[in-house]
């Protein structure tokens, strides 16, 4: 099952909790970017590996992430 996650980047507080729960380990912090709050936001680069499990979104305290099943 393929999935797609989108990050409401400027809501992200860079806490990294989402990066610890992804079963395929694709959620990372984007060290090349700084958001409006001054944090490196979370992101996914290898989107084709996402299985749309929703774990990253459920772990996020700041409702940054939306998950879709493709």
């Amino acid at each position: 099952m393929a999935g797609k996650v989108t990050f409401d980047e400027n809501r992200c507080k860079g806490c990294e909790l989402c990066t610890t729960v992804c079963p395929v380990k694709i959620v990372i912090m984007d060290k090349d970017k700084i958001n409006i709050k001054g944090y490196h936001p979370a992101t996914v680069k290898e989107m084709d590996k996402c299985i749309a499990c929703g774990s990253c979104a459920r772990m996020c305290p700041d409702v940054v992430i939306t998950v879709e099943k493709l």
Binding site: E16, P61, D62, V63, T66, V67
Partner: peptide, 30 residues
């Protein structure tokens, strides 16, 4: 495309003042 997870209507658009990673945010959402 089906939505698996999106922000609930039970929360406002306001961003919280909680520290990064504070689980108050998760509990609010639940």
């Amino acid at each position: 495309m089906a939505i698996v997870f999106q922000k609930t209507k039970g929360l406002t658009e306001k961003q919280t003042h909680y520290c990064p990673g504070c689980t108050h945010g998760i509990i609010h959402r639940l």
